[in-house]
Computed example of a mutant assay.
Amino acid sequence: MTFKFDPQHPFSCFVTHSESMKNTVQNAQRFAMFDVPLLIQGETGTGKDLLAKACHYQSLRRAHKFIAVNCAGLPDEDAESEMFGRKVGEDETIGFFEYADGGTVLLDGIAEFSLSLQAKLLRFLTDGSFRRVGEEKEHHANVRVICTAQMPLNQLVEQGKVRADLFHRLNVLTLNVPPLRERIADIEPLTEGFLQEISESLNIQKPTFDRQFLVYLQQYNWQGNVRELYNTLYRACSLAKDNRLTIENLNLRLPSNTLVSIEEFEKQTLDEIIGRYEAQILRAFYREFPSTRKLAQRLGVSHTAIANKLRQYGIGK
């Protein structure tokens, strides 16, 4: 994710060695210039909001407002007024769409809106027109809308949480942000960058760590993704002694399936046991390096050896 955000170079804060994340960032840079709704999907903590902000500052709307709205934080009875404004007698207020006229509005967690509110949003996305609550007069706002969702929106449509017509309206430009557990190659550069940022904020020397510490981070599942990694490293820095990070500082527990149990291997030979883990490792790395040449280069073996292994385990196309 993510070090300090620079509006002049909005995508410079994304530090990644992962092929999947590189593709996401490259697509985001292209999509930033298109003036149509954008959908960003990904688990919590993956950096969807930061990606949306980068798209705004890369766009022609950069000189105008960027408003981020937490959809879950809007009470249902107030959400329409917050979006479109309200008029009661002579008193009137404007909503965030009108306030951001010319700029960008991020709707973070679009599935949190009620179905009736989604219908009103769909109308606004169609032509930019709306009515304030308590008023019949039509208004218009020129806003680019970026929506985020933690689950693929088509699944939420099937669950009845998102209107199908809204999904089809949003499903034009879509970015899928991969979870951190599928971006093992990013753990090390993210750790280095976060430690630099954290040490500056704590006014301490940047802590050191050994290879075992890094491997432990790479084995952890990171359900909270990049945000959880940052918070974990912040806590570890606060607990570090002699400016050195240890696994104990992390206060994390690896899933039990990372621990070796003799019983689970039954009568398998050593070659069979190693092959089992080799296949898992190759599948994980192949998601990041779907080219046999890139994969061979990353793992430090010959292209022929990798091709044979992938064929042996049925990995790839």
Rank of each mutant, 00 (worst) to 15 (best):
F3A: 01
K4L: 13
K4Q: 11
P7S: 01
P7K: 08
Q8G: 02
P10S: 01
S12L: 00
V15R: 04
T16L: 03
S18I: 06
E19Q: 05
S20Y: 01
M21Q: 06
T24S: 13
Q26C: 02
N27I: 13
A28V: 09
A28S: 11
A32H: 13
F34G: 02
F34R: 02
D35M: 04
D35K: 08
L38T: 07
L38H: 05
I40H: 12
I40G: 01
G45W: 07
G47W: 06
K53R: 15
H56R: 03
A68S: 14
V69N: 03
V69L: 02
C71G: 11
G73T: 10
G73A: 15
D76S: 09
E77F: 15
E77W: 04
A79E: 09
M83T: 01
D91G: 01
E92I: 01
T93H: 06
I94F: 11
D101F: 00
G102Y: 04
G103N: 02
L106K: 07
L107Y: 10
G109D: 09
E112H: 14
F113I: 02
F113W: 01
S114I: 11
L115K: 04
S116N: 12
S116I: 15
Q118P: 10
K120N: 07
S129C: 09
F130Q: 01
F130V: 11
E136W: 02
E136N: 15
H139K: 08
H139F: 12
H139I: 00
V145R: 02
I146C: 10
A149L: 09
L153G: 02
E158M: 04
Q159K: 15
R163D: 14
L166I: 09
L166D: 03
L166T: 08
F167E: 01
H168G: 01
L170G: 10
T174C: 12
V177H: 01
P178G: 03
I187L: 14
P189M: 13
E192N: 13
G193L: 07
G193Q: 09
F194P: 02
L195S: 09
Q196S: 14
S201E: 15
I204E: 08
I204S: 07
K206I: 13
F209G: 03
R211F: 13
F213H: 11
F213I: 06
V215G: 03
Y216F: 15
Y216A: 00
Y216I: 09
Y216P: 00
Y216W: 05
L217H: 00
Q218H: 02
Q219C: 13
N221R: 12
N221K: 09
N221F: 13
N225W: 02
V226H: 05
N231E: 06
L233S: 03
Y234D: 13
C237M: 06
N251V: 13
R253T: 15
R253G: 12
S256L: 11
L259Q: 09
V260C: 07
S261W: 06
S261Q: 14
E263V: 01
F265L: 14
E266R: 15
Q268E: 15
D271C: 04
E272R: 07
E272F: 12
I274Q: 07
G275E: 10
G275F: 08
E278I: 00
E278W: 00
E278T: 12
I281Q: 10
E288W: 03
E288T: 08
T292N: 01
K294L: 14
Q297P: 00
R298V: 07
G300M: 05
S302P: 04
S302W: 10
H303P: 03
I306R: 07
Q312E: 11
Y313P: 08
G316D: 04
